[in-house]
């Protein structure tokens, strides 16, 4: 039983090692890439959000629902 315990901990440390290697190797977004994606998706949320907001306001004045 002792052997399997050592094996287990080796397996776990191997796993963690592969995770660490993957994270280290992963290509992180550059500042510009990050800003680009943030602006694009942020703008999308703002535009759709604004339209939804205006409709909600109008609906509110029409007595809570169309």
């Amino acid at each position: 039983k002792k052997k399997s315990k050592a094996e287990l901990s080796k397996k776990i440390s191997e796993q963690i090692e592969s995770w660490r290697r993957t994270v280290r190797l992963a290509r992180k977004p550059t500042r510009d890439e990050f800003m680009m994606v943030a602006k694009i998706t942020g703008l999308g949320i703002v535009i759709v959000g604004l339209i939804a907001y205006m409709i909600k306001i109008i609906v509110h004045f029409l007595g809570g629902s169309l």
Partner: peptide
């Protein structure tokens, strides 16, 4: 899905009533 989420963010965030 995007419309639903954006609507919730807008309304829960800025509902003036």
């Amino acid at each position: 899905i995007v419309a639903g989420v954006a609507q919730e963010i807008a309304w829960r965030g800025f509902n003036p009533f």
